[in-house]
Design a protein around this nucleic acid. Sequence first.
DNA 1: TTGACAGGTTCTCTTATGGAACCCACTTTC
DNA 2: GAAAGTGGGTTCCATAAGAGAACCTGTCAA
Lengths: 152, 152
Amino acid sequence: MRWEDLDQEACSVARTLSVVGDRWTLLILRECFLGTRRFEAFESRLGIARHVLADRLKKLHEAGVLDRVAYQERPKREEYRLSERGRDLYPVMVTLAQWGDKHMAGPEGVPLLRIHDTCGHVTVGELICSDCGEPLHARDVHVEAGPGAVTL
Amino acid sequence: MRWEDLDQEACSVARTLSVVGDRWTLLILRECFLGTRRFEAFESRLGIARHVLADRLKKLHEAGVLDRVAYQERPKREEYRLSERGRDLYPVMVTLAQWGDKHMAGPEGVPLLRIHDTCGHVTVGELICSDCGEPLHARDVHVEAGPGAVTL
DNA sequence: TTGACAGGTTCTCTTATGGAACCCACTTTC
DNA sequence: GAAAGTGGGTTCCATAAGAGAACCTGTCAA
């Protein structure tokens, strides 16, 4: 399969990965969630090649994940901010970070703690069933064809 | 930054992506969660080049995400199954799928529904704070240095 | 003894990435 | 008013990764 055909797959994971599934995109979005907004800042914080960064920011903007917001005129300068669509990727970030916290942290502990301002405590995101509120585990979930399923 | 240095970053997102952050790995893991176990099955379901598949399965095994389980001797044949570590990636899969469901599904609807066997209903995973139980949104969370933070 | 099967490896060609240099529209400083 | 700085790119080249096809290796069955 070619990478460009990925958004045609009848699978939401594949379709999401067609937007965020390359080497750099999720790291760029991590920076966005940490507050980074400008080209130079992304470059220096990530150590990414400039043309790759320019390409990814362009694609994320075209995908509606990042908005370009002018922060000065003359010379015109724009910064990149998460759109609503982009902020919706937050659960992906948190679950990725938590897997790393659990399985990739060294003996010295996790690099970053997430504090939930609402309650003031260190938080670990927990995935629960929207219907019954119980934790959602792979072994308790099966899939069925949805309305957009491809009938082969 | 070179891709090989990614697991050295003081960031759990980066460290997780050093394991699952390339083009194919998360799609291979999607198949694992859907029940695919054998080389040929991954190949035909994903349309991935064979040498790339062999390389990714090897790396996932080395990373402890997939176990190799013999299912016959003579000729020796092994299949790939999610380890505990691998099953811990389920929240990442669900959140990726849900972003796709919300933002990438066509007018015909989502391709797959997830049914929570515990309650019997179609489920949408919801990320809540482990401490207070409220939904976890990016705007309500800030980060602080953890014990494994790098002090620059 | 020829095929088939599962699971790879090897080959060549195309595409993507890393790293450095260069460009452009301004503004600030000398 | 010329030189240097700033932010955000683009261009060029060498290396690395991917796609696609062919080939290899045990083993069994016809």
